[in-house]
Structure formats: C-alpha cells, structure tokens
C-alpha cells in the first residue's frame, strides 16, 4: 500500500504524471493495470525513484514511459532496449526499466531483446503482451496465436508465435515470469522481484485489448477477456518455460519460471576492464 490513503488522490498518483490523466488507453485496456502494479512494485522495493529510468518503444504500451513520474524516455520502435543498455552502462547506479509491448520488443526489437538477455545487462524488461499491434489497429504480431484473427490475418494467423518466456530464458535471462493483469498481487510481487534482482529480468504481462484483438477474435468486452484469463490460467511456478506456449484456446501457464544468478555484463566489465587499468 502506498502512503496514507486520502479521499482526494489515488495513492498511485505519487508515481504517475497525474497532470497527464486521463491517459490515452482504451476503456478496459490492460496496460493501465500493469502500470498500477508496476508503480506499486516500485513502492514495495523501496527503490529510490530518482535513480529509476524507464524506457519505452512505440505502441500502446510504448506510452507507459510518458505516464510514470521518473526519468522517462519514449524512444523509437523496437529500440528501447539498446537505448536502455546505454543508460545502464553509462551509469550503473541507475535502475533501468524497459516497459513496452510484444510487437515492439519481440518483432522489430527482437534482436536487441535476445542480445540484452544474453549479455545479462542489468535491466528489467516488462513486456505487455496483448497478442497484436493495438496502436495501428490490430495487425498480427510475433505473439499472435496460430489461427487468431487480425486485420492482416483475416483468415486466421498462419505465422507461429514466440513463446516469450522460453525465448528470453534460453538467451540467458536471470529472472523470467508471466502473469496477467487479473493476477495483480502476484504480478506486483513478481515485478518487485524482477526490479531488485541483478541482471536481465523479464516479466511478461498478459492483458486484454478489447478494442482490436478482443474485437477481432470475438472475445467480447474487456471483462470477458479478463474472465477468460481467470479460467484459462494455470499457476505453474517453476515450470520449464518451454512448456508455456500460448494457443488460441486452452490453458495458459503463468508463474515465476526462472530465477537464477549469473554474472551480469557489468560484473564482467569491472573484472575484465580492470586489467587495462593495472598496466
């Protein structure tokens, strides 16, 4: 819980740019609740907000940087991770967070995603996955389930999707989890764990997109999408993320999948660059 509760201000406003509300997201969009969990997670960790920098790419969730009251960067499509890499390495005291969407991070930015995980750069990546490109009107993306409809897969999607936790875990991420916005407490806790763990940490957040993905796949309104998550999700902490593929129907595994320790990029830098200074 953040601070004292009052009748005038939402406690999360402490961490938000309240002067920019209401935000641009649609009614029932899941980006908002994931941001609420995120700022509560920041609060939970007690991290110094002056030392947090958040970087977003482009898309609906790319707008997150603009609403969180820390040093925040709204960059170009897919490029949040390399931008954040520069921030993190130039000032290792910063806690660098990338908050962006599945299309941004895994399609156009996919190359950066896998390399940041491989390097184990100190950064937390929060990937809001709504299974399509919402901002541009609902085209298929790198996570769109097979058979799902989108404006560019009118007959059903023939393009097999990424299983993101499996992808980043295989690349070397130190922490990998997946929750949905209807699991706010687990999500908040998981985000807090990701924020405090050294190295590359990754939280996939599944959420409704009633405006495009939901509409095109006849999922009903946002509440129906949330109900479907409640019904389909199976909490499976510790399972091998390779088993966490998401289909159009059927169970969705959620949970904290990976939590391991391996030296970060910065750990290696300190050790190996140190050789240059001894000479």
């Amino acid at each position: 819980m953040i601070g004292t509760k009052t009748l005038t201000d939402n406690p999360v406003d402490l961490y938000l740019r309240a002067d920019r509300m209401p935000h641009i997201w649609c009614s029932g969009c899941g980006v908002g609740p994931s941001v609420a969990c995120f700022v509560k997670a920041i609060h939970r960790t007690g991290l110094d907000t002056d030392k947090i920098a958040i970087v977003s790419g482009i898309g609906c969730s790319g707008r997150v940087a603009g609403y969180v009251k820390v040093d925040s960067f709204h960059t170009t499509h897919g490029r949040a991770i390399p931008f954040a890499t520069g921030l993190a390495l130039a000032n290792p005291e910063l806690k660098v967070v990338v908050f962006s969407g599945d299309g941004d991070l895994a399609a156009i930015g996919g190359n950066h995603l896998i390399h940041a995980a491989r390097r184990n750069i100190d950064m937390t990546v929060i990937c809001y996955n709504n299974f399509n490109y919402g901002m541009t009107g609902g085209q298929l993306g790198p996570t769109t389930p097979l058979e799902a409809k989108s404006t560019t897969s009118p007959y059903g999607n023939c393009d097999p999707p990424f299983n993101l936790p499996h992808l980043v875990a295989a690349c070397g991420a130190s922490y990998v989890s997946r929750w949905t916005v209807i699991h706010p407490r687990q999500l908040e806790k998981s985000m807090a764990e990701a924020l405090t763990k050294p190295g590359f940490t990754f939280v996939e957040v599944l959420g409704p997109c009633p405006t495009t993905y939901g509409r095109m796949n006849k999922l009903g309104r946002g509440v129906d999408e949330l109900r479907a998550y409640q019904e389909r999700c199976v909490v499976s902490n510790g399972v091998d993320p390779r088993d966490a593929e998401i289909g159009l129907n059927g169970p969705i595994l959620v949970g904290n999948f990976v939590d391991l320790s391996r030296p970060t990029f910065w750990d290696h830098c300190v050790k190996i660059f140190g050789r240059a200074q001894k000479k």
Partner: peptide
C-alpha cells in the same frame, strides 16, 4: 565503457542512452 552491439541500430541507440546518463558518447 566499450560495448560491441548487435548492429548499428543498437549502437546508435546505446550512445543516445549513454548521453542521457551524462556521459559523452
């Protein structure tokens, strides 16, 4: 700090990020 990025797109972005952390890049 020297880092070899995965491509030139990443390189350009990384130097922007570093500059915003206050380091000439």
């Amino acid at each position: 700090v020297y880092i070899q990025m995965e491509d030139e797109i990443a390189s350009m972005n990384a130097i922007l990020g570093a500059s915003w952390a206050g380091v000439k890049s």
